[in-house]
Each structure stands twice: as C-alpha cells, then as structure tokens.
Amino acid sequence: MNTSTIFPSSDYNDVIVDTPTIPSKREQRLDKAINYFSSVMFAIQVILAAVFSGIELHYGIDYLNQCPIQPWINIFLIVHGSTKLAWVLLGIVSFFNGRVIYNMMNKKTLARSIIILILPLQLLFALWFLAWFIVGNVWVFSCKSRVQYTDPTNTSTYCQQTLYSAAYGLIISTYIVVGIVAILTVKRRVIGKTIRQRISS
C-alpha cells in the first residue's frame, strides 16, 4: 500500500499577504493637518481672506498719500492685503492637496510630502500676520483721537475719511471674524470629541 506524505508547498514564502499599514504618529499628525486644510472651515477662511485682501488693496492703493497724519496706514493696508493674497494662493494649494491628491487620487505619500513643505510657510504667514496686524493697530488707533477729515491743509491731523474708516473697520472686522472662527473651531472639536466618546462607549 502506497502512502504519500503531504508536504507544504515549497513556495509558500512567495505568497504575498496584503496587510494594512498603520501610519506612524508623524504621518497621523500630517494626515490631521491635511484634513484641516481640506475642510469646509478652512475653505471659508480662504474665501474671507480673499475678500479682505481685495478690500485692503483697494483702499490702500486708491487712497495713497491721502493720510498725512499717519502715512503708514496705506502701507499697512497694501502689505497686509498683498501678504493675505499670497496666503490665499497657498491656501488653495493646501485645499487642493487635501481634497484631490490625498482623497480623490489617494496619493497619500505625495500629499504628506507637500504638506511638509506647506506647514512651515503657513507658520511664517501666521507669525507675519500677527506682527504686522499689531503694528497696524498701533498706527490706526494711535491717531484716532486727533484725526480730522475736513481740512487737508492741516497735515498734522488730516486723513481721508473713507481711507481711515476702512482701515479702522477692517481691523475691527478681523477681530470679529477671528473670534467667530475660533469659537466654531473649538465647538466643532468639542462636538467631534463627544461623538467619538459616545461611539466608543
């Protein structure tokens, strides 16, 4: 009686098992950044920044040299508007990276490489915005009690009313928008955390 011994196939090592890879902590942080930059909230921020940028450039350029009490108000609006416009372009790239390259094309490694380049630029923009915005506040608010709009010959106190009102209003509007965005961001995170806790429990 013939008996045959069954041995495992010698080429069992050639079988490739497709096991899901778990992202590292660094990749997880990059993924979170990508998700933020591709969110609706970020898209709204980009749109608002584009609107504010256009307004700042309009008033800063159209009313150039019409505020002798504080000539730096024009410079503040032009530089702030130009920098914000550059940030808008960077924001569009960030949004495209998250929505198209990361999600639609599923090229996660490429998207993470792009976000590594974008994040330092975003940080630099944030620091520059903060510093320049504070300086602009000083220029605008320091002459509020002395400014007048009726006598252009008195250069020590005159500023074109539309220009000054625009600069003043843009600063106040920026505070309001930043406050609303901060509240919505915190609220979204708290709600998201609550939902995740309820799902896990």
Score class of each variant (00 low, 15 high):
1 M>Y: 14
1 M>C: 10
2 N>L: 07
3 T>D: 02
10 S>F: 12
10 S>G: 12
10 S>L: 15
14 D>V: 01
14 D>E: 11
18 D>A: 08
19 T>I: 13
22 I>C: 11
23 P>W: 03
23 P>T: 11
24 S>D: 08
24 S>T: 05
27 E>P: 05
29 R>A: 12
31 D>N: 14
32 K>T: 00
35 N>F: 08
39 S>G: 05
40 V>W: 13
40 V>K: 14
44 I>K: 09
45 Q>F: 04
45 Q>D: 11
46 V>F: 06
47 I>H: 03
52 F>N: 12
52 F>L: 01
53 S>L: 07
55 I>Y: 00
55 I>A: 05
56 E>Q: 15
56 E>D: 15
56 E>P: 06
57 L>K: 00
58 H>T: 15
59 Y>N: 11
60 G>L: 01
62 D>A: 15
63 Y>V: 04
64 L>V: 00
65 N>S: 14
65 N>W: 11
65 N>Y: 13
69 I>F: 08
70 Q>E: 11
73 I>A: 05
74 N>A: 10
74 N>M: 01
76 F>P: 00
76 F>M: 09
77 L>E: 04
81 G>D: 12
85 L>Y: 00
85 L>N: 06
86 A>K: 10
89 L>F: 05
93 V>H: 06
95 F>W: 03
96 F>Y: 09
99 R>W: 03
99 R>C: 04
100 V>W: 08
103 N>R: 15
105 M>N: 14
107 K>C: 03
107 K>Y: 06
108 K>N: 08
109 T>W: 02
111 A>T: 09
113 S>Q: 14
113 S>L: 08
117 L>C: 03
117 L>A: 08
118 I>K: 04
119 L>Q: 14
119 L>I: 15
119 L>D: 04
121 L>G: 01
121 L>N: 10
122 Q>N: 13
123 L>M: 14
124 L>Y: 03
126 A>S: 09
129 F>W: 12
131 A>G: 06
132 W>C: 12
135 V>G: 10
136 G>T: 02
136 G>N: 11
137 N>H: 10
138 V>E: 04
139 W>N: 15
140 V>N: 08
142 S>A: 05
142 S>Y: 03
142 S>K: 03
143 C>Q: 02
143 C>G: 05
144 K>R: 15
145 S>H: 08
147 V>R: 02
148 Q>G: 06
151 D>S: 07
154 N>A: 12
154 N>Q: 07
156 S>Q: 11
161 Q>Y: 07
163 L>E: 01
166 A>N: 15
166 A>F: 10
167 A>S: 09
168 Y>G: 07
170 L>H: 10
174 T>V: 01
175 Y>V: 12
175 Y>K: 12
177 V>W: 14
178 V>W: 09
178 V>L: 14
179 G>P: 09
179 G>I: 06
179 G>R: 04
180 I>E: 08
181 V>F: 14
185 T>A: 09
186 V>E: 06
189 R>F: 13
191 I>T: 11
194 T>P: 00
197 Q>K: 04
197 Q>T: 08
199 I>P: 01
200 S>D: 03
200 S>W: 01
201 S>T: 11
